[in-house]
Amino acid sequence: MTLTFASDLGPLWPYLFIFIAGFLATEMWRWIGVLVGARLDETSPVLGWVRAVATALVAGVIAKMLLAPGGSLATTPAALRVVAAGAGLVAYLVFGRRLVVGVAAAEAVLIAGWLALDP
């Protein structure tokens, strides 16, 4: 029998499902990270490598969120999302490295493009 979220296993089953497939599936990596990190020295080259991998992984998450989003954002062309995000990054770098400026510029380009394409 295949266990799914919709399986009729009592009122606590949805919570157990989220506990196993949500909490345990994410928290175990944090716990392993604590155990690995306990052996790392702040100046060791291994830590440099771990940081580089972590940074590349987060970059990958960003790319996936931009290229394969959920909800109504998925109806916009990918090119618009990439251009808007790029505009935000450029605005951030050019106008004094302020986060607000970067996020606002990206949102402005996205919304303007969205309304222009789909009035």
Partner: peptide, 22 residues
Amino acid sequence: AFVAVSLSAVRLMPMTAAIMPM
């Protein structure tokens, strides 16, 4: 679901390991 969520969360391991020494 467990496998898919686990794969999406692997990044938490190096992120946690990198922050612990600090």
